[in-house]
Design a protein around this nucleic acid. Structure first.
Length: 336
DNA sequence: CAGACGTGGGT
DNA sequence: TACCCAAGTCT
């Protein structure tokens, strides 16, 4: 298929059936595109929308973000996951203000030098913000291309990945990139879905390898699934009046830079079990116990390596907490 | 290269 | 329920 034919079909479909009312599309300024693309990494559109709105209300410009504290940023990002994105987004704003005088570069190499911006996001910024040639390969495009062209094999393998990027580079037009990129994503997100793709409405049906060979379920090649290990975690509940003790999580590691109950290396000798929870991450399952010490034992703690603080119940919302911790907090406040 | 890195929606 | 996996990047 020729580049022009492919692009023409995508653009035509996009105009009629694509998404035109996503919050970050109007207006698609470089800053708004950057924020949305970082938020959308491995995260669904419906989850991102309220976070994006709150973010823009709080940090309307690159400069306001560059001046924000890490804690402010983490508090706004709490619940969205992959928190390095939030730390990097703040660094990105500072970097762009310092090194580029707050004006976004539009070439690939300089975009790739921005913290948290990889090949996909760099291409997305070029396409969405500058309407320039900017090939993108994300999960949607991978799925669409693997089916359309009959590309087999684990898409995380470098050879397969390279093949997909070469396809994208070839098929991406030199005009109308904003609508082309959106069309590519929308075809993947609304037609060429992981389960039960809507082939009947697909403009590429007649050329699709997977449709022709009835291999929609086999393509893209499913990843080998690994089972996640279980790790035991212990947290310390210390209360004083209406306040609770929090500790800033170290970096690197899970929940880095969030505030959390202090984590212990093992269960305390004489302590009361205040609560338990299980939380499954992408790569392990946490089985957590929360321990409260009696009044007399409360001071007996080693010098903390991480910042600690006491927070009033009413002020907890100002702190970025891990989701399962935030969920268990009401149960903890009820206790004596 | 393989693993770390979160959470919630959809089936 | 359990499992897949989402507009990926960094180390």
């Amino acid at each position: 298929m020729q580049t022009k034919d492919f692009a023409t079909t995508v653009l035509s479909w996009q105009k009629q059936h694509g998404r035109h009312d996503l919050p970050w599309q109007q207006p698609a300024t470089p800053y708004r595109v950057l924020v949305s693309e970082i938020m959308l990494q491995q995260t669904q559109v419906t989850t991102v929308i309220p976070y994006f709105q709150r973010w823009m209300d709080t940090f309307p410009t690159l400069e306001t973000l560059a001046q924000a504290s890490e804690d402010e940023v983490m508090a706004l990002w709490q619940g969205l996951g992959y928190y390095s994105r939030a730390r990097n987004l703040r660094k990105a704003a500072q970097y762009l203000v310092q090194e580029f005088n707050g004006k976004f570069p539009n070439n690939l190499d300089e975009l790739l030098s921005i913290p948290g911006v990889g090949p996909y996001t760099a291409g997305a910024i070029r396409s969405f913000a500058f309407n320039d040639y900017g090939p993108i390969v994300d999960g949607n495009v991978k799925r669409f291309f693997c089916r359309l062209f009959g590309i087999e094999g684990d898409t995380t393998r470098s050879a397969v990945n390279k093949q997909l990027w070469n396809k994208a580079a070839d098929l991406t037009p030199s005009h109308n990139n904003r609508h082309f990129a959106q069309g590519l994503l929308d075809i993947g997100a609304t037609l060429c879905t992981p389960a039960n793709p809507d082939c009947a409405r697909c403009p590429f049906r007649s050329q699709c390898f997977a449709y022709k060979h009835n291999m929609q379920k086999e393509l893209p090649t499913p990843k080998a699934k690994k089972k996640v290990p279980v790790r035991k975690s212990h947290f310390l509940l210390q209360r004083s009046g209406h306040s609770i003790q929090l500790e800033k999580r170290p970096q690197p590691g899970i929940w880095a830079a969030l505030w959390c109950l202090p984590e212990l290396s093992e269960a305390p000798a004489s302590a009361q079990l205040a609560a338990e929870f299980e939380h499954t991450f992408s790569h392990f399952k946490m089985r957590a116990s929360i321990w409260s010490l009696s009044q007399s034992e409360q001071v007996a703690e080693e010098a903390p390596h991480n910042p600690q603080c006491w927070v009033e119940q009413a002020d907890v919302a100002d702190y970025g907490l891990p989701s399962p911790i935030k969920k268990v907090l009401p149960k903890l406040w009820e206790q004596d």
